[in-house]
Amino acid sequence: MSYQIVVCGGIAPDPLQTLEPVPGPALKNEMMLPHVFDPWAAHALYEAGHLAKLNPGAKVWVVSMAPKAKLQQVMMTVAQKLPFELVPLDGPPGGFTDSADVAEALAAAIRTIAGLDLSRLLLFGGWESATRGAGTTMQRVGALLGITEQFLAVDQLEVRDGGSLRVWERLEGGRQQVSLCSGLPAMLAWATGHLPEPPNHPPTGMANGRLLMPALQKAKPAPAGAGCTFLDVSLPKQIRQTVIVKDKPAAEIAREIVEWITQ
């Protein structure tokens, strides 16, 4: 089946240990930090790429909203992993924007994709962003596009003969709900999936690059607000007084630990 898969995903600073909020709120030096494609969305992208590979004629679009210059940098790496067409939106950085605004922008961008049949759409994304970490954007995009079959924290997708989808969603306590979806359109917000990160393949990058560069140059500004008032933004400050136990025989440590566990 010639799937039309749209993957929504932003970018996230990585490594994260130097994050420090500043009034705005924003992150101090966020644009200086190295960034990656949002790790949750990346899982969705790898699954999309895999599905497209198995189904000739399938096509993957990535709709991404981030500051254009940084998005461009990140995309030069992502584009080497699998074939896709980028639909970039030049939006604000970071996680302090509201999912309503982001979803509006993403849905509007998806509607403008030439040749996309919304009634056959497979909408993919991460189940949360690594920045806002709310897990609300994809459902909003789905709602805006009128998609009533939605799945969250997807671990596995099985495409069955006849085009129906069997979906495993991750529940609390490590259980999984299994559902059968008889047809498209559908929205799948992925948890980790099962696929490793594809290795870079420079020729794929070059092939993607032909459309990537002009698309980025033409990326439209997509304003997004916070939608709320931030009363306080801070790094957690609890520092524990760590007791360091050195030079104690293993047997004694083991006894102490067992005692502590059984208390």
């Binding site: 210059a69 940098q73 030069m76 080497q80 560069m213 140059q217």
Partner: peptide, 23 residues
């Protein structure tokens, strides 16, 4: 690092050169 990024972004935005990292 920051200077490279600043210069590299301008080159990329020109659309006249591609810079492929991790390659």
């Amino acid at each position: 690092g920051q200077f490279n990024q600043w210069a590299g972004q301008q080159v990329l935005m020109s659309g006249l050169a591609q810079i492929w990292p991790s390659a």
